[in-house]
Amino acid sequence: MTAQLTTPRRASARRTSQHRRREATRSGFLTVFVALGALVMIVPFLWLIVATTYPTSEIFTVPPHVWFGDYFWQNLTTLFQSRGFGDALRNSLVVATVTTVIAVFICSAAGYAFAKFTFPGRNVIFVVIIASLALPSQVTLVPLFQMMVELGWLNTYPSLILPNLAVPFGIFLMRQSMSSVPDELIQAARVDGAGEFRTFLQIVLPTVRPALAACSIFLFLGQWNDFVYPLVVLRTQDAYTVPVALASLQGVSSTDYGALLTGTLVSITPVLILFLFLQRHFVAGLLAGSVKQ
């Protein structure tokens, strides 16, 4: 009897051991794959950092440099003093920050309306907003340019900020997040005498803080990296944003790659700081609304 019981136990233990070995092997392969992917992505970034410490004549040497040089401050001085990159950095910070703050509020308010209110044409309007995501930005380039000309806003901050205050993706993201806010919470606030605006600011927005962080990162990154539209509406160098200023560093016959790569490194620093500051909310914000309670 004991032998009959021992045999199934041994078989079960053997299967458990085989399963654990398979899981360990699968986990090992996945770890190696992720490590290789991370290496492929981080090596160009490391090369960028190293290249900014060398003059243009030494950047593309073979074999490439693997350690830092002593030319970083010269490249930085050339970038900001000779190329006027400080104006571009200031313009991009002002435009991206103001646009992100206002656009996040507008997208949140629109998402709240679509998620928690019932009004005629709600679904049709939302479908139209989602369908506009498939519309290439180049299609609206000429109409926007004509509007800026008629308003006299060429080469100004409003020409860069106003067209990007209602972003369809931001509205979609916030609507999905607002859908997960319990209706009972909103009803309780209304019963306690809170108006709709106060309920939205003090009850709903703190609840969807992760989605706000994710939306802020997406909107800031999109505005910071926008190149074609600012290139069309900006006329003078002192009004350039960072992408346009970086493009202007490329000459017809020669290019100062030391200044160009240093400008690239400087341009990605604000985005990295923003992401590091909001990273703990980022994944939670992307998953907001995916699970119904």
Rank of each mutant, 00 (worst) to 15 (best):
S57H: 07
S57M: 10
I59G: 02
T61K: 08
V62F: 14
P64K: 07
P64E: 12
P64Y: 01
H65M: 06
W67C: 00
G69W: 00
G69S: 07
D70E: 03
D70C: 01
F72M: 05
W73S: 14
W73C: 05
L76I: 04
T77S: 04
T77V: 06
T77F: 03
T78K: 09
L79M: 02
F80H: 11
Q81N: 03
S82L: 13
F85P: 07
G86F: 05
D87C: 08
D87H: 15
D87V: 05
L89Y: 07
L89F: 14
R90G: 03
N91G: 01
S92F: 01
L93H: 03
V95D: 11
A96P: 05
T97C: 00
T97N: 06
T97Y: 01
V98T: 09
V98M: 12
T99M: 03
I102G: 08
A103C: 10
A103N: 09
V104F: 04
V104Y: 12
F105W: 14
I106L: 15
I106E: 03
C107G: 01
S108R: 11
A109Q: 07
Y112S: 12
Y112P: 02
Y112A: 13
Y112G: 12
A113S: 12
A115D: 07
F117K: 14
F117D: 10
F117H: 15
T118P: 08
T118A: 15
T118Y: 13
F119E: 14
P120W: 08
G121P: 06
R122N: 11
V124H: 01
V124W: 09
F126A: 06
V127H: 12
V127P: 05
V127E: 10
V127D: 10
I129G: 02
I130V: 15
A131S: 09
A131V: 12
A131I: 12
A131H: 01
L133Q: 15
L135A: 13
L135S: 13
S137V: 11
S137T: 11
S137Y: 14
V139I: 15
T140H: 05
L144D: 13
F145R: 01
Q146P: 05
E150S: 10
G152M: 09
N155H: 11
N155Q: 09
P158S: 04
P158A: 04
S159I: 01
S159P: 04
L160V: 02
I161R: 06
L162H: 10
P163T: 09
N164I: 00
N164V: 08
